[in-house]
Computed example of a mutant assay.
Amino acid sequence: MKASRLNRLFNEKSGKCFDVAIDHGFFNELTFLGGIENIEKSVKILIDADPDAIQLTVGQAHHLQSVPGKKKPALVLRTDVANVYGLELQSVLYSRMIEEPVLQAIRLDATCVVVNLFRIPGAPEVTDQCIQNILKLKPMCDHYSMPLMIEPLVFRPNSEAGGYMVDGNIDIILPLVRQAVELGADIIKADPCENVEDYHKVVEVAGSVPILVRGGGRADDEELLDRTYKLMKQGVKGIVYGRNVVQHANSGGMTRALMAIVHDGAKPEDVIGWVKGNK
């Protein structure tokens, strides 16, 4: 039964997935609300652009699932809330899972649930909480045939890059991705690395578990499209981008351009005009 849900998540022709994450409001950070202040409007724009999936929370999933019609993006449901993204970290950090996450996902007709696996310098207790969340979630997912997406996130020290602290060191990314596989992930949503040409190592260490690469912080159009193209050539099964789509002035055009790269192997120079509004 997991296969039936995965079939709704991954494109039937390419076997790849583009998931647009707009679950950022869960994390109580003002900067994360850019582009999704009116989330109902954001969801409508994305539905029209037709990505494979939209990643939402229990409080916002209805904006997608209440839309009539058989053809719309699949729902990926965020199951955990954390307070680890601030420019100044709070004295007590946490990562908490929602109650009955899989049953809530089933009621919302989700195709997948997603949970974090943080590695934060100086905060091993948060990693412990994440592992405990996953250990509880995994048997529930198996029992109800719900695919489990684990999101291994490697942070830089907050003093170096407060806020969205992505560390692209592949030597740290690799073992955390492998730990996510060992914990039972059906899908991995992983950090990008500093040198995109090394990303085949992440794919290799994950084995048969498909890798979707997260977008991280904002990048300019050319850089984002070029990186995505190179990632797809490295063997990843898709992308999960959020702010690089919803904070873009032409989020619909950016979505269509990324879909063409992910599913059709389009080159960045062939789709940049869609992003710029020239086509």
Score class of each variant (00 low, 15 high):
Val76Ser: 03
Leu183Met: 12
Cys112Gln: 04
Ile173Val: 10
His263Pro: 01
Leu176Cys: 02
Glu269Leu: 08
Ala123Gly: 00
Met97Arg: 01
Met165Ala: 09
Gly238Ser: 08
Ala249Gln: 05
Arg156Cys: 10
Ala266Phe: 09
Ile36Met: 06
Asp171Ser: 14
Ile106Gln: 05
Leu9Asn: 06
Gln129Ala: 10
Ile239Pro: 02
Ala123Asp: 03
Gln60Leu: 07
Gly34Ala: 07
Thr228Asp: 14
Leu258His: 12
Leu56Pro: 04
Asp191Arg: 01
Val262Pro: 08
Met1Glu: 12
Pro139Cys: 12
Lys72Met: 11
Leu108Gly: 04
Met97Thr: 11
Tyr164Ser: 10
Arg8Lys: 14
Arg107Pro: 03
Val246Pro: 02
Thr57Arg: 03
Val84Gly: 04
Lys201Met: 15
Gly35Ala: 06
Leu225Ser: 08
Ser145Lys: 14
Leu56Phe: 00
Leu30Trp: 00
Asp220Pro: 14
Asp226Asn: 15
Ala190Cys: 13
Ile134Pro: 08
Gly207Trp: 05
Pro101Met: 09
Phe26Cys: 12
Lys70Glu: 15
Asn7His: 14
Val271Phe: 03
His24Ala: 04
Val58Gly: 00
Tyr229Val: 02
Val20Trp: 08
Phe26Gly: 02
Arg119Pro: 00
Asp109Leu: 11
Lys70Met: 15
Leu117Pro: 05
Met149Val: 09
Asn133Pro: 11
Lys71Gln: 15
Leu6Lys: 15
Val181Asn: 03
Tyr229Ser: 14
Cys193Asn: 13
Phe26His: 03
Ala110Cys: 01
Asp19Val: 13
Arg5His: 11
Leu30Ile: 09
Leu137Val: 10
Ala249Val: 09
Lys13Ile: 12
Leu174Thr: 06
Asp109Val: 05
Glu182Cys: 04
Lys72Asn: 04
Glu37Gly: 04
Ser145His: 15
Asp264Ser: 10
Gly15Val: 06
Gly184Asp: 05
Gly184Tyr: 00
Gln132Pro: 00
Lys136Gln: 10
Gly86Tyr: 08
Gly34Met: 01
Asp48Thr: 07
Cys141Asp: 01
Arg78Leu: 11
Phe27Tyr: 15
Lys136Asn: 09
Leu135Gln: 15
Gln90Cys: 00
Ser66Trp: 07
Gly86Phe: 05
Asp191Cys: 12
Ala257His: 00
Ser14Trp: 02
Val236Asn: 09
Thr79Glu: 05
Thr111Trp: 00
Lys201Phe: 01
Lys2Gln: 11
Pro157Tyr: 12
Gly252Phe: 00
Leu46Tyr: 13
Asn83Ala: 06
Leu89Tyr: 09
Thr127Glu: 14
Pro121Leu: 05
Arg96Thr: 13
Glu99Ser: 10
Ser159Glu: 15
His24Val: 07
Ile172Tyr: 05
Asn195Ile: 12
Leu174Gly: 04
Phe26Val: 15
Lys201Glu: 08
